[in-house]
Nucleic acid binder design. Structure first.
Length: 555
RNA sequence: GGCCCUGUAGCUCAAUUUGGCAGAGCAAGCGACUCUUAAUCGUUAGGUUGCAGGUUCGAGUCCUGCCAGGGUCACCA
């Protein structure tokens, strides 16, 4: 360890000088801060930033000139892309005179060059350049543009369509007006085109801001808009697929007095006038199957489920599910229909039957691999389930393989853990895993002659679980037994997991429920796969985020 | 809920290693420029470094707590 005693005098002196200098710098810095705080406190709290105040002044200035920055009505003859097409038509001599057009959109860039201004406006279909010259609009209007129009403002512009010397389709503007002034500047996003590739500069990337202010995200990130267009196309394709096959789309209660149909904790709410607690549904299953009792042969619902659980890359508290129930079908038929459905949706949304997800190529054209669960566990986990007929022995052999489990975990849950650990990540190409343990599938029908296994399958691809289906249990007495069994299992576990008996569902089943196959798929995950998004929040417009401090204060 | 990482100007990021006057580009203000396209050139301004404490003569930097986000594990399909 060094000691100052042994330092040469010169070094010692320089250290002292540094120390003394540092002291005065520190002192002046403190004084500066105090001064700043005093002047800051003198100014009242500012709601608007400097940039915003600047734009507010422009609004006032426009109104002084008798110009309303938020007019009621606008005119438009072409969208940006229609205008480009019209220009190309004229260039092919399809039109006799240059095309006149009135366009609207948001100003995304402005390049003033003295008595000439280039600007790009953006509408729902894309961008087009405005060519605004003093020759056409006059000195006064050009001054108005430069002084009071900003990036982000919505503008209406009229003129004729031309191509600039650089070859870009443009509107040579003769008249323009403000149609909506932006107070807050959009988060900067500049595009540069280099050899056909678009390079994005300073785009809005912070995920928190993007999710909390999705409007700004959508406004500056066109690829985000594309994701939600793909999502809309997915919903449309799913509806088309089932409508074409005679299924009827239904809507069942979101507020339910008794929740069920899945192993998940619900959100609880309360009806004031009825003095009744209600649950936000965790699944549609029990209501949809009641409808088969009522005589519909195929029903489906696309809607929101709510599960009071952890949030991560693949889980949002509310998520969209598609469920269908199909009378006179079994899980084999449902597998066939699932293959067909996923292929159809991919074709409609992406235009092809192969998708790339996070670097994995998934082929949806071929039939899916079908693997019996016990075979998969034997092959991929190296455990023959027949050798471990009870939970205790299975937990022990799993522990040898490094999988810890809580004492008393039911055998079915252990098997499910094995699937998640050893099988799921390997299922890159579409795979059905079928024949599940009964104790984690209380609504599924037994495999004939085997009381421990049910006719249930799950579908996987790209290492992700996508859907879940079974030959539905339609024996009311067996169903009641299963409910009681499940209630006992969870009763001993934790109150949280306890599922109440749905007596009305049993009554419905006692009237007679046709044999049927049922199915559920996470639409968000399907959209993730189709749009190659690694996070569920990228496919949900307004994903749930924790409240921020200032928002909490308002409560 | 556990562990790891992150939070700096409207946006994207430096400065944190080793404590010593918080910077740049874009956006913004002013000026020049009649075919630009991240236009260019000149110039000006812009900060509670997530919040609150602590250590220190001095903290964006070190320590503690909190808030938010990301990742991961657990829970959960």
């Amino acid at each position: 360890m060094k000691s100052n005693n042994h330092l040469p005098e010169s070094e010692l002196r320089s250290r002292i000088v540094k120390l003394v200098r540092g002291f005065f710098i520190g002192l002046s810095s403190i004084m500066n801060k105090i001064l700043k705080k005093m002047t800051g406190a003198a100014m009242s709290e500012q709601k608007y930033t400097k940039l915003e105040q600047n734009r507010l002044e422009k609004i006032a200035r426009l109104r002084e000139m008798g110009i309303e920055p938020y007019p009621h009505r606008v005119e438009r003859t072409h969208t940006s892309q229609e205008a480009i097409a019209a220009l190309e038509g004229w260039e092919r001599q399809e039109e006799a005179t240059p095309v006149a057009a009135t366009l609207v959109g948001r100003i995304r860039s402005m390049r003033p060059m003295g008595k000439l201004v280039f600007a790009h406006i953006e509408d729902g279909e894309g961008r087009i350049q405005l060519f605004i010259r003093m020759n056409e609009v006059g000195e006064e209007a050009l001054g108005l543009l430069k002084e009071n129009f900003d990036l982000g403002d919505f503008i209406q512009a009229s003129g004729e369509l031309i191509r600039t010397r650089a070859g870009e389709p443009s509107l040579k503007v003769t008249e323009f007006r403000m149609i909506a002034k932006a107070v807050t500047p959009l988060p900067a996003a500049k595009d540069e085109e280099v050899e056909g590739e678009i390079i994005r500069h300073a785009a809005l990337t912070d995920p928190e801001t993007r999710y909390r202010q999705r409007y700004a995200d959508l406004a500056v990130n066109p690829h985000v808009r594309q994701i939600f267009e793909a999502r809309a196309a997915t919903n449309k394709a799913l509806r088309q697929f089932f409508d074409d096959r005679g299924f009827i789309e239904v809507e069942t209660p979101i507020l339910q007095p008794i929740y069920g149909g899945a192993a998940a904790r619900p959100f609880v709410t309360h009806h004031n006038q009825l003095k009744q607690d209600l649950y936000l549904r965790i699944s549609f299953e029990l209501y949809l199957k009641r409808l088969l009792v009522g005589g519909f042969e195929g029903v489906y619902e696309i809607g929101r489920d709510f599960r009071n659980e952890g949030v991560d890359r693949t889980h949002n508290p509310e998520f969209t599910q598609l469920e269908f129930y199909w009378a006179y079908a079994d899980y084999q038929k449902v597998m066939d229909l699932t293959e067909e459905m996923v292929r159809y949706v991919a074709q409609e949304v992406t235009g092809g039957t192969t998708i790339t997800y996070q670097g994995m190529n998934v082929d949806l054209a071929k039939p899916w691999r079908r693997m019996e669960l016990s075979d998969g566990v034997a092959e991929l986990a190296g455990i023959d389930l027949e050798d471990f007929p009870d939970a205790g022995s299975l937990a022990a052999v799993m522990k040898e393989k490094g999988i810890e489990s809580a004492p008393g975990t039911p055998r079915g849950k252990l098997i499910d853990t094995l699937v998640g650990e050893f099988l799921e990540p390997t299922f890159v190409q579409p795979t059905f895993l079928y024949n599940y343990p009964r104790d984690i599938s209380p609504l599924a029908k037994n495999v004939a002659g085997n009381p421990e296994i049910v006719e249930r399958f799950e579908g996987f691809m790209a290492g992700m679980e996508l859907c879940n289906a079974f030959t539905e249990l339609n024996d009311p007495l067996e169903q009641e037994k299963r409910f009681i069994e499940m209630g006992r299992a969870y009763d001993s576990d934790a109150d949280d997991d306890y599922h109440p008996m749905d007596e009305d569902y049993l009554r419905a089943m006692r009237y007679g429920m046709p044999p049927n196959g049922g199915f559920g798929i996470g639409v968000d995950r399907l959209v993730m796969l189709l749009t190659d998004q690694p996070n569920i929040r990228e496919v949900i417009l307004f994903p749930h985020l924790r409240s921020r401090d200032e928002e909490k204060d308002v409560e």
